[in-house]
Write a protein that binds this DNA or RNA. Structure first.
Length: 162
DNA sequence: GCCAACGTTGGC
DNA sequence: GCCAACGTTGGC
């Protein structure tokens, strides 16, 4: 199983929103590197749900991939902000996955705290000017984040298994 | 294929 | 709201 980190602006769609709706299509990703990571995701992979552009940026909870990469319909919807006039329906450029809420963190694990974790030193997340909205996370980084949040990483991974 | 201009991201 | 960092675009 792989681990990932997904960024979302809590003002637009935060972890509480994911808990409310249960499952949510992760669409609107329009960056090739991020898209390529989406395409590597497999059902059951766990994701850290990160709040960006917020007063307290950080990880708010854990999500699980419930559907592997498939065509992001918004790229063909002229009314959508994510419309891509260049995309060819025969060979769609953009993909989306589907995620569900697994476990909220007791409180948001702040970026400052994440930066202080040795496992996260090499992550693109903690690099200045980081813009990647979907990024891979090592098992060590995932475990360190859960431990720092006060959760039992092993227990959660077991419980999250479908 | 270079690179300046532009638009967007995201911490602060 | 500011601005640095980054990805993308498009003229040449």
């Amino acid at each position: 199983m792989s681990h990932w980190l997904l960024k979302s602006e809590p003002d637009v769609f935060g972890y509480p929103d994911l808990e409310r709706v249960g499952r949510e299509p992760w669409n609107g990703v329009r960056n090739y590197q991020a898209r390529n990571f989406l395409r590597q995701m497999m059902v059951g992979d766990l994701c850290l749900f990160y709040h960006s552009r917020s007063k307290a940026p950080g990880i708010a909870g854990v999500a699980r991939i419930t559907r592997a990469a498939h065509t992001d319909d918004l790229q063909f919807d002229p009314a959508s902000a994510y419309f891509d006039p260049i995309s060819d329906p025969q060979q769609p450029r953009w993909s989306m996955v589907e995620v569900e809420a697994v476990q909220a963190f007791p409180e948001v694990l702040t970026l400052d705290t994440i930066r202080a974790l040795p496992e996260w030193e090499t992550s693109p997340l903690t690099r200045k000017g980081a813009r990647l909205s979907v990024l891979p996370v090592t098992a060590e980084q995932f475990g360190a984040a859960l431990t720092a949040a006060g959760l039992n990483a092993v227990g959660l991974e077991r419980a999250a298994r479908p």
